[in-house]
Design a protein around this nucleic acid. Structure first.
Length: 223
DNA sequence: ACGAGGATGCTCT
DNA sequence: GAGCATCCTCGTG
């Protein structure tokens, strides 16, 4: 820790303080669009044996069961005919608060949070986060990056910076101390800073405005 | 500044 | 075999 960091850890962002503010399952057991909006400002906490990082969510995207861009879309259609979910998307039908982490383009692990009640698919992709603790660790893990905002302004980047990988796929984050989400009591989302746009990098159902981000935040992936 | 293209491996929309 | 919920480098201007 250099001591002059804008994103230096504070006592309010210590592991213990954040663990006390961990979000319960009921937060995630709601309409996916609502959860995607309300996740803005929430802090992702990631602890290993020896390292701790935390970062505020500044950009999300919602993926719904009846949404052709969602990995669960085909499976959800089959479920209507009584065929049980299987394969990659099975986790999207499980308990709210679970992590869904999948490999994209053969190289990057993308981190999602499962929403809705069990039996209904839904997820929120985390696309951008702002470091609040352990930024020196993130710099070390993303050593090629020149500016700090490039550490975590993208779904593949934040997984690298925070060491979020397939070992967490399917875990219940409401029970985990290694990867969980915590409310920041000092953060209030005001209507003026919430921006809604179409989602990034998809070809199907591309017109839905289901991407949300904090206006003018440098850790948003695409302006 | 910006656009094109390559890397790379899992899932099956 | 095609198609990815991406990122980075290298060209050009």
């Amino acid at each position: 820790m250099t001591g002059k960091d804008k994103y230096e850890s504070k006592s309010s962002t210590s592991f213990r303080a954040l663990l006390e503010k961990r979000l319960p399952e009921s937060f995630f057991a709601r309409d996916t669009l609502t959860v995607a909006k309300e996740l803005l400002g929430v802090i992702i906490c990631r602890k290993t044996k020896t390292e701790f990082t935390a970062a505020r969510i500044v950009e999300t995207e919602a993926y719904l069961a009846d949404d052709p861009a969602c990995h669960a879309y085909a499976t959800a259609q089959k479920l209507k005919q009584g065929i049980a979910p299987s394969g990659r998307s099975k986790i999207l039908f499980e308990e709210p608060g679970c992590a869904y982490i999948y490999l994209n383009y053969g190289m990057y692990w993308l981190f999602n949070v499962v929403t809705e009640h069990p039996g209904t698919a839904g997820a929120v992709l985390i696309r951008g986060v702002e470091p609040v603790a352990g930024i020196d660790l993130m710099r070390a893990r993303r050593s090629k990056v020149k500016n700090d905002h490039q550490l975590t302004n993208g779904p593949g980047k934040l997984s690298l910076a925070m060491k979020i990988g397939p070992e967490f796929n399917g875990i219940q984050m409401c029970d985990s101390r290694e990867l969980f989400l915590a409310k920041d009591p000092d953060f209030q989302l005001d209507h003026k800073s919430l921006v809604s746009t179409t989602r990034i990098g998809i070809t199907k159902a591309k017109d839905h405005p289901w991407r949300y981000y904090l206006r003018d935040n440098p850790f948003v992936s695409v302006k």
